[in-house]
């Protein structure tokens, strides 16, 4: 198992060395990045929006239920909701969801290209297939995931405002006051730094599992599952270290 882990990490590192090379043609690279932004980024806006809106609402309700103390002002509900969403829910939980949605897409797309010899076709043409296929996906994820997280933070807070108002747990005015209270702008930077690193982990790990598939359709499925599991674990582990480094 230990050998397998180190062998896998070594192969991953070697693949990344092939990925980060100058593209054969910049115009083709730009075209591919925009296509990946469309496939991996814009297609995820809907699911991110729905989840963020409802989780923001749930966080507000649960926080309100746990702060039912007359000595604690209502606006603390908004403050707690804000910190939960900015620090953890949007960057980490949404990245985990993207690891499932985007990660499986990347692994199965590249894996299918591998088993149908499309990657061999690129190699025979003299194209660096690793860079051609993987670099645009990494670039698109690093560029667009922070935008998704900004959308998620905004909609999470919107969900919180409406849930608080509709249930009568906190008024809109109190919520607004709580959102502004003791706000630390660095937390936004912290969320975005985490997101960029998670985006790299999701796209590169998933691409690695797809690119190294051997066999047929079943193996593509297995690689897709492994991509989601491993990128999720990587996110959780990286989250711990990033939190320690950035917030300590």
């Amino acid at each position: 198992m230990i050998y397998g882990l180190f062998n896998g990490m070594g192969t991953y590192a070697l693949l990344m060395l092939r990925v980060f090379r100058k593209p054969e043609r910049w115009s083709e690279f730009r075209k591919n990045v925009w296509r990946e932004i469309d496939h991996l980024g814009l297609d995820s806006v809907g699911i991110v929006a729905i989840i963020s809106l409802f989780v923001g609402a749930v966080v507000t309700i649960q926080t309100a239920l746990n702060l039912e103390d007359p000595l604690i002002p209502d606006y603390y509900i908004a403050l707690a909701t804000r910190e939960s969403i900015i620090l953890e829910f949007s960057p980490t939980m949404i990245s985990l969801i993207l690891a499932g949605k985007v990660g499986s897409n990347i692994a199965s797309t590249i894996g299918t290209m591998r088993v149908t010899e499309q990657i061999d076709a690129l190699d025979v043409m003299g194209i660096n297939s690793a860079s051609y296929l993987i670099l645009p996906k990494i670039a698109a994820a690093i560029f667009f995931n922070p935008i998704l997280i900004i959308i998620s933070i905004f909609l999470g807070l919107v969900g919180g405002v409406f849930a608080g108002d509709l249930t009568g747990m906190i008024s809109m005015a109190d919520f607004e006051y709580g959102l502004k209270l003791g706000f630390i702008p660095f937390y936004i930077a912290y969320a975005l730094i985490k997101t960029v690193i998670f985006a790299f982990l999701i796209s590169s790990i998933s691409a690695f599992f797809g690119y190294t598939v051997k066999g047929g359709a079943i193996d593509v499925g297995t690689a897709s599952t492994a991509a989601v599991v491993n990128s999720s674990v990587a996110i959780i582990v990286a989250n711990y270290f990033l939190t320690d480094i950035l917030l300590s």
Binding site: T112, M113, T116, E117, Q118, D120, A121, V124, M125
Partner: peptide, 13 residues
């Protein structure tokens, strides 16, 4: 300078 025709075609989907 090499052209290759793969067994399954290997066309880009």
């Amino acid at each position: 300078e090499i052209g290759m025709v793969f067994q399954g075609g290997a066309l880009f989907d």
